[in-house]
Design a protein around this nucleic acid. Structure first.
Lengths: 336, 336
DNA sequence: CACTGTGATGTAACCGGTTTCATTAGACTT
DNA sequence: AAGTCTAATGAAACCGGTTACATCACAGTG
């Protein structure tokens, strides 16, 4: 490996001058700079970000920890975050906690000493652990908020999806279609956003006088939705809201497999609006919480261009064809 | 930030001893080690991987560059790679080239000085660039091979999907079902594996006396498959092989939208076997090239446990219900 | 008892850059 | 011509660890 001292030697200058020339300091005169750059090119030299980081105290890297890289929500989030930071020549250390708080904490520790900030997406950590982490390295919480009573640490940003609007509207929508009860297909047990969605639906149902029942899923994917299909009874469960579109899609397919008509017998609402046109049939009514926008907000927090300590991605309900008027089987009707 | 000198001071030992105690050297006696560990705990100290890397020459990180994190093939690959390396306390720097060789090269440069190795997944770089990179940092090529005439650099591993078997079988399968021609829905123009798939199909078709036509797609996703649906003519295009399952799925949905029956009118074969059960209807005949296994092989190459310089993931054709006997419209039949 | 060997610890150099501060040369002032 | 200022460069400290080598105490040996 070639070092800056070799470059300096070849260029016939001191290491200080070489360093200045290479980092574009204006204090070095044109011909000198060229000698250094030529030498560097000749030796195929690139500065060691490691060594630079050690002395400057900034690494040019940020850490990102996700519950599951494989989940489209997180991979989109990551893609956008990466795209923005890349333009600022910032690298990304990625960690996959696989929904495990212990592993998440381990990864945080591995990262802290080599990044300028850590982004925790849908963190499964306890508030206390997050607060503790924020004392060692700036933290951006994405899709997760600390409890209201927890005071926000100095170096903690939050970027959130404002699902309140979307989920309230989802409940209102189903209510207005005559549904008298709702089934919520929840996400992972430790998911903060899943819990929020549940709370919002609960509040909404209460205000509309609807029943709410919750079905848990371990991993929020297609298979979970498919399995849930067989747990539903079209006689009583006419309206379903899912944690995300993957679950909703699995449900759609599972219901079709069971010859249950959507939206004729059961109405389905998803979340994220992450499915490409034409994949879901019928097209899915969903809450559009954009992970890419969330990624952009996280990037803004990292870059210091965020306007406030906690930012929100707005949502709204996108009504398509997986929801329709509830069919109320009256006692008189026979099921044939 | 607390340093090892502070820990040493509190523990009443020299920095050397502190360092040894913290890194588990056997040369330090039990009570001393405890004093150091206690001091470290009291000061909430963690070693700076940065500083350690600088002197030891090994960073404990590897870089991974992908054409698109959002693509399930790559996110699965990444997930597995991460999972294995995580158990060895190795971190991952991730870069998304977005199919752009220039960006890919930039990312390689950003990484080289801070990783122990770089994994290039489906690299879009020229052989020469890859070889050049391999002189600066060990490289693992995943799903991409150098040209046969290019001599393998010392620090270059290759982990490949042995699609030959799967794709030959796909062609044979369709041939045996009476299809007289094949349409190949290709992936990104710069994709090496796409080119390989094309070559294999070409060879196979030649040997079976089948026609082969190739349709290009820019991004290998659902939407591309959907668009391709309208480019097919069921009268002549009865057998289709797709670059991956996402394209195949898009095609399936697009064909259904156009009221073209699969497999009645058109048979479809995908690649990767990445779709969850029940998503595709009819279930998709596909070549099972496992990205997770590929990720595991890449990890083995990194860890030095690889048995050879180039490893292969075997494939075979998984026959399901999206392929069937070709319906040959004879001139006498009317289309009604 | 003097001598050698061994094991625990300390001292200081080192990794590859950046940056403070000193030095030097030349331009400008008076 | 002496003095002051400025701009370019160099010397050396420093970032936070690791490790080669020196040191020292003590046990074992003849």
């Amino acid at each position: 490996m070639t070092t800056i001292r070799q470059v300096a030697a070849v260029a016939g200058v001191s290491v200080a001058t070489a360093s200045r020339a290479l980092s574009g300091s204006p204090a070095v005169i044109e011909p000198t700079r060229n000698r250094v750059l030529d030498a560097a090119a000749a030796l195929d030299f690139t500065v060691s970000r490691l060594a630079r980081s050690l002395v400057t105290g900034s690494t040019g890297n940020v850490g990102v920890i996700l519950p599951d890289v494989t989940n489209p929500f997180y991979s989109s989030f990551l893609a956008e975050l990466e795209a923005v930071l890349d333009t600022h020549d910032i690298g990304i250390l990625v960690g996959d906690s696989r929904e495990d708080p212990v592993r998440e904490l381990t990864i945080v520790h591995r990262m802290t000493s080599q990044v300028d900030a850590v982004v925790l997406a849908s963190s499964r950590l306890a508030d206390a652990d997050i607060v503790a982490a924020a004392t060692r390295v700036p933290v951006v919480l994405a899709n997760r908020a600390l409890a209201d009573e927890t005071p926000l640490p100095r170096f903690l940003h939050q970027v959130l999806v404002d699902i309140d609007r979307g989920f309230s509207d989802a409940a209102r929508h189903l209510h207005s279609l005559g549904h008298t009860g709702l089934v919520y297909l929840d996400g992972p047990a430790r998911s903060w956003s899943g819990q929020q969605k549940r709370l919002i639906l609960d509040r909404a149902c209460r205000s509309f006088g609807m029943r709410l029942s919750v079905v848990s899923t371990d991993k929020p994917d297609f298979a979970a939705g498919w399995r849930a299909a067989s747990a539903l009874d079209p006689a009583s469960d006419t309206g379903v809201v899912a944690f995300n579109d993957e679950i909703a899609l699995g449900l759609l397919c599972g219901l079709r497999d069971a010859d249950i008509d959507v939206p004729g017998q059961i109405s389905v609402v998803g979340c994220d609006d992450s499915l490409p046109d034409g994949l879901a049939w019928p097209s899915l009514t969903t809450v559009d919480s954009s992970p890419r926008t969330l990624g952009a907000l996280a990037a803004a927090a990292i870059l210091g261009t965020a306007e406030s300590r906690t930012a929100h991605v707005p949502t709204h309900l996108v009504i398509r064809h997986s929801t329709s008027v509830a069919r109320h089987p009256s006692p008189k009707e026979s099921t044939l």
